[in-house]
Nucleic acid binder design. Structure first.
Lengths: 138, 138
DNA sequence: TTAAGTGCAAATTATTTGCAGTAAG
DNA sequence: CTTACTGCAAATAATTTGCACTTAA
């Protein structure tokens, strides 16, 4: 009998042209297993996977996050000098960054309207627009 | 007779409550000496100061940039996973980030209109809003 | 079988820090 | 004087890489 592979995560990977290895499946389950969007860092995902009982090395977590980004499965958010965040919601939308806890969350996109962006200078095109609203305790 | 201290940089420092030391004066001259706005990194400023003939250690460049930020003389821009940029223009304005050269420059602010921002969640206030328009060669 | 994926430990990059010496008020 | 500032070298944090081993197709 075939191994009971969870279909959702396997599809998420294969549809992006990635091999559904044991490690990638474990990470995918934590990222998109319940259909909710998440904002994670390499370290936080590493902690989650350890807690879930699976074993994936930290280097592989880093490398896999990069691979997922290149495959268009995740979006990297650059928010803080040091560490990188990854968002399972790959649409262009603004973020809240909580300066005290260093947590990242979605900001309600409907409330943000950029009337018109500066036009890209000659010979350049806009790759993406990052909007980060930094919050601190009032 | 008093030492001929360059007035502009000395004022920039003293008005922010900072001692105009030799090193800070050398850095201030490079940052705001000609009244132009600049986007620099610790390493690039370190290179400039060496080229100018002055000697300031890299650690001091890093520490001084932090001090200048806390004093409100510079604004730190978080744009790339790894390194920090500092802007002598402390007003809130959007930036272009050139992905190929990793250079940061001002985007024409008049062209950007954020109609209305998301309201800060309860117990929080907006510290600042970073808008980074990432450009790649077309 | 065989190219892609993984784990470890060592390497890198950007930045910070401890501490002894130097200088500004 | 005495407290803040500076320089150096070592420490740290996040991430990447080299390379031998495994595994999915």
């Amino acid at each position: 009998m075939t191994t009971p592979i969870l279909p959702c995560e396997a599809d998420w990977l294969t549809q992006a042209g990635l091999r559904p290895t044991k490690q990638r499946m474990a990470l995918a389950l934590l990222l998109v297993g319940d259909g909710q969007h998440r904002h994670i860092t390499a370290e936080s995902l590493f902690a989650s996977v350890r807690k879930s009982g699976n074993s994936v090395s930290l280097a592989t977590v880093y490398n896999t996050l990069k691979v997922f980004c290149r495959a268009g499965l995740l979006r990297e958010i650059t928010v803080n000098g040091a560490k990188s965040y990854f968002d399972t919601n790959i649409s262009n939308h603004p973020h809240f960054f909580w300066e005290d806890t260093e947590e990242l969350s979605d900001a309600p996109a409907e409330d943000l309207e950029i009337s018109h962006l500066p036009t890209a200078p000659d010979g350049a095109e806009i790759a993406k627009v990052d909007v980060v609203i930094r919050l601190r305790k009032a």
